[in-house]
Design a protein around this nucleic acid. Structure first.
Length: 825
RNA sequence: GCGAAAGUGGCGGAAUUGGUAUACGCGCUAGACUUAGGAUCUAGUCCCGAGAGAUCGGGUUGGGGGUUCGAGUCCCCCCUUUCGCACCA
């Protein structure tokens, strides 16, 4: 038996053993003690994982092992978010098929997980790119289509004329295509949507139930849904004999509406400008605005631009005529795409009114001084009293005032109360190959026809060309596109759009519970027993999109009667990023390949071992916070593990009996308590610190021969058990060398006895007027009388009391006593 | 601009409920062992002042005020940083 710590041999040995034993496999038929933990399944990109990625998985594995030792039936599955654009780009750049590229990457990542010593239940592995998985995306889509939750409409998209494809917002860099640099244009295309806006209210309400979610994420989701209460108000346009509806959160300021502003895309625009003398010029301007990418157009720096249509509307409250304008700052998709401008009480409207020399009218007046509407430079937002706006004169800016105005508008038939959301329906169409084909087809006689369930899955053809410049490769696959209409038997063409990969990831947590079911999306019975996910772990970058979509789809499946829960993830944990100095940029940045500041786990594991990386990663700081990687500090973790290794050989140094057994026993129990509580609240860094201290105590006890052999061995065994979640390989090896045959994973988490942590005699802190002056030894249970006697006997305390008189004493039992004095008379 | 979180030694950080601020680790200093060591071990390491010394006194959690016997922790004002949203009517 070798005595030096050979991390390579130890780690390979145990990784192979865990793999052979299928150590993390769970039989889902049993649910006693069930705990469903889940790491956000990764995208198998071609890059090797670095230590920054490792933090996430190591954290999860430490939690998993801790749960197991605490008797939980913990399920920790892993799969692959395997569809996506990089695979297609790899195909274009390197001529390798997206499928082969993806499967190759999965293999590499799986090997990396193993080398970190991470245990997943691989019997439940899934990959979203397999037809066995994505057929259920299609099935779900068809159910949503039936219920009207999936629909198709024209929508403006970012379009690269050179690549001839739609780009996601993230792929537009300064108004140009990220890949070829061609300026991106806005273009209207028929696109598929999922009606997530129908669920806006429930998505908001559900957040209030999620006590186990970080407040930050809930706030971000609330803002994203963006609920606004207000009213819709109709303004008549005499020239068109039609009315224009606006949405406003401030119906109480309707008397101050001095002009209207429409988005250039508004359906009424062309009729409004039909007889305008400079119509062509305005149309050209509209075209320019429409072609501005949405991100740029809605940036605050973008100057406000507008055009007068020449038409007027009637303000229902005043009966006055007000001009109708078009402006780039009004967004067609929010509210009704039209606003009533109240410059006196809205910052943006005031700026625009001043720029275009439009009139301003006050509704709310300040009480302390008069404001001149022709010169005012600051809008009056939430103060003042209404004047000259019958029948509301005298009312103040308050929610009740708004309610009264809404009631009045409803009574007069001019408008009604209305709630609007910022949330838009979910655009799922992608003009890409590597995704789930949307299962509909187009027949010349029957029109759009859903693919019958019996014909699912609509499989991606393998034999496709990837040239990179011709739009969606699918549309050039005759074998795929040309098909037969299931209704009439005539010729039909398949939809070539594929789904956003966020569809795949919005229900995968259910598939893990019956991953091989070929008859159903998932087994509702097992799902109801195992859902919700008890602990979900992943990056904050998914705070909005993924987590919102997953909540939405879960609610849809709930409404379909397929699963009881409405919220899929009970507790959410977002680990912080790992940062490191980057020579490229000359500052500390997120660790990433493109920044050239990654640390490879391969080399680190080779040099110091996976356990060292694990311990350091957990010790680096609070896991929810960002942490800066330090190459030097890693060696501290390595030294600690080496000390733990050497302690085994030092155990025989202890004598059969020794004087201070109780002290080490106290440390042991106190450490169990500290580590247990730390791990329960994800405080891995303090858990590691506590274990370092226990290791130091044991080392000292051996050195000074203050504890018995039995006591030292017992302490050491506890140390190995408590350390196991963080450093699984070395602890298993040492445990085996201690002579135990069962895996540490199968042992029960050590228990502590509070009575053994308490000391008989304690050092009580003595303060005089809040300042630390001495410590006295007293019985732990000493009452105030006894403590006072002991304290007043202290020479140092006497010194500080000299010339003063004791006013009162505050005793915190077991901790301190504070003697409060005053000048003696 | 709105919203959220945070600010503690040279550095990463610790301090469940208000109760010994700076645990643990890195780095640094000195010493031991050594053929050499980026190995290992031991001691020291918040700042200022006094002392040969064990020690003693004072100060310190971004700044200022407050509550309290007692504040890193609670309240108010300000400063800084990070993150999210951002022409949403």
């Amino acid at each position: 038996m070798s005595t030096a710590y050979d991390h390579k041999a130890v780690e390979t040995k145990w990784q192979d053993r865990w793999e052979k034993q299928r150590a993390a496999e769970v039989d889902l038929r049993h649910t006693r003690g069930k705990y469903y933990m889940l790491m956000m399944f990764p995208y198998p990109s071609g890059d090797r994982l670095h230590v920054g990625h490792g933090r996430n998985y190591i954290l999860g594995d430490a939690l998993y092992r801790f749960l197991r030792m605490n008797g939980k039936r913990a399920l920790n599955p892993m799969g692959w978010d395997a569809f996506g654009l990089p695979a297609e780009n790899a195909a274009i750049q390197r001529g390798v098929h997206p499928r082969d590229w993806t499967l190759g990457n999965i293999k590499v990542m799986k090997e990396q997980f193993k080398r970190w010593g991470i245990l997943y239940d691989w019997s439940k592995e899934i990959a979203s790119c397999f037809p066995e998985y994505y057929r259920w995306n299609q099935w779900l889509f068809l159910r949503m289509l039936e219920k009207g939750l999936a629909y198709k409409k024209m929508a403006p998209v970012n379009w690269c004329p050179s690549c001839r494809t739609v780009l996601a917002n993230e792929q537009v860099v300064e108004g140009a295509c990220e890949r070829c640099g061609t300026p991106v244009v806005q273009r209207d295309l028929e696109q598929w949507f999922l009606r997530i806006t129908d669920y806006a209210e429930r998505l908001l309400a559900g957040l209030d139930q999620l006590e186990g979610w970080p407040e930050k994420v809930k706030v971000m989701q609330r803002n994203w849904v963006g609920r606004s209460e207000g009213a819709e108000i109709r303004f008549e346009i005499p020239a068109l004999k039609e009315s224009l509806t606006v949405f406003t959160t401030r119906p109480d300021t309707v008397h101050g509406a001095t002009f209207m502003v429409l988005a250039p895309e508004h359906p009424l625009t062309s009729r409004l400008i039909a007889s305008h003398p400079r119509r062509a010029e305005i149309e050209a301007w509209i075209e320019k605005v429409r072609n501005t990418p949405r991100i740029q157009r809605s940036a605050e720096e973008t100057p406000k631009e507008g055009r007068d249509t020449g038409a007027v509307a009637l303000n229902p409250a005043t009966g006055g005529e007000i001009p109708i304008w078009l402006a780039n700052y009004v967004l067609p998709e929010y509210g009704t795409g039209a606003v009533m401008a109240v410059p006196a009480h809205d910052v943006r409207d005031l700026a625009f009114a001043r720029q275009e020399r439009l009139p301003v009218r006050l509704v709310y007046h300040l009480e302390d001084h008069d404001v001149d509407p022709t010169t005012m430079t600051e809008a009056i937002l939430h103060e003042g009293v209404i004047r000259n706006a019958p029948p509301f004169d005298g009312l103040r800016d308050a929610p009740e005032t708004i309610q009264r105005v809404i009631g009045w508008l409803e009574e007069k038939g001019w408008g009604q109360g209305k709630v609007t959301y910022r949330l838009r329906d979910w655009l799922i169409s992608r003009q890409r190959y590597w995704g789930t084909p949307i299962p509909v087809l187009y027949c010349e006689t029957c029109g759009m026809v859903p693919v019958p369930d019996g014909q699912l899955p609509v499989e991606l053809p393998y034999d496709v060309e990837f040239t990179g410049r011709e739009g969606n490769p699918l549309s050039r696959s005759k074998a795929f596109v040309e098909t037969v209409c299931p209704k009439c038997g005539g010729a039909a063409r398949r939809e070539t759009d594929t789904m956003d990969t966020f569809v795949d990831s919005s229900w995968y947590y259910l598939r893990f519970l019956s991953p091989r079911d070929s008859a159903r999306m998932f087994d509702p019975e097992t799902a109801n027993r195992w859902m919700a996910v008890d602990q979900y772990i992943g990056g904050i970058e998914h705070a909005i999109l993924h987590l919102l979509y997953a909540r939405f789809i879960c609610k849809v499946l709930h409404d379909f009667g397929m699963v009881d829960v409405e919220e899929p993830f009970q507790n959410l944990f977002n680990q912080g990023m790992i940062t490191r100095w980057s020579d490229k940029s000359g500052r500390v940045e997120k660790m990433s390949k493109s920044r050239g500041n990654t640390v490879s786990p391969d080399e680190l594991i080779e040099e110091m071992g996976a356990d060292t990386e694990r311990v350091y990663t957990l010790f680096i700081g609070p896991p929810e916070k960002e942490a800066e990687w330090s190459d030097e500090a890693v060696s501290g973790a390595h030294r600690f593990l080496q000390r733990v290794w050497r302690l085994l050989e030092r155990l025989p140094e202890a004598l059969p009996t020794a004087p201070a057994d109780a002290e080490l026993e106290r440390d042991r129990h106190a450490t169990i308590q500290r580590v247990t509580h730390s791990l329960q609240r994800f405080s891995f860094n303090t858990a590691v610190a506590a274990l370092m201290e226990l290791s130091n105590s044991l080392s000292r006890a051996l050195e000074e021969k203050t504890a018995s052999r039995l006591r030292c061995e017992e302490t050491y065994d506890t140390l190995l058990q408590l350390l196991h979640p963080m450093a699984p390989h070395i602890t298993e090896e040492l445990w085996e060398r201690r002579g135990y045959t069962e895996s540490l994973l199968e042992t029960s988490w050590p228990e502590y006895d509070e009575a053994k942590i308490r000391r008989q005699r304690i050092h009580l802190v003595v303060q005089v007027d809040g300042k630390l002056r001495d410590r006295v030894e007293v019985d732990a249970g000493a009452d105030e009388k006894e403590v006072r006697a002991a304290v007043l006997a202290s020479p140092r305390v006497k010194e500080h009391l000299a010339g003063r008189e004791l006013a009162k004493a505050v005793l915190v039992p077991g901790r301190l006593i504070n003697l409060v004095t005053r000048k003696s008379a």
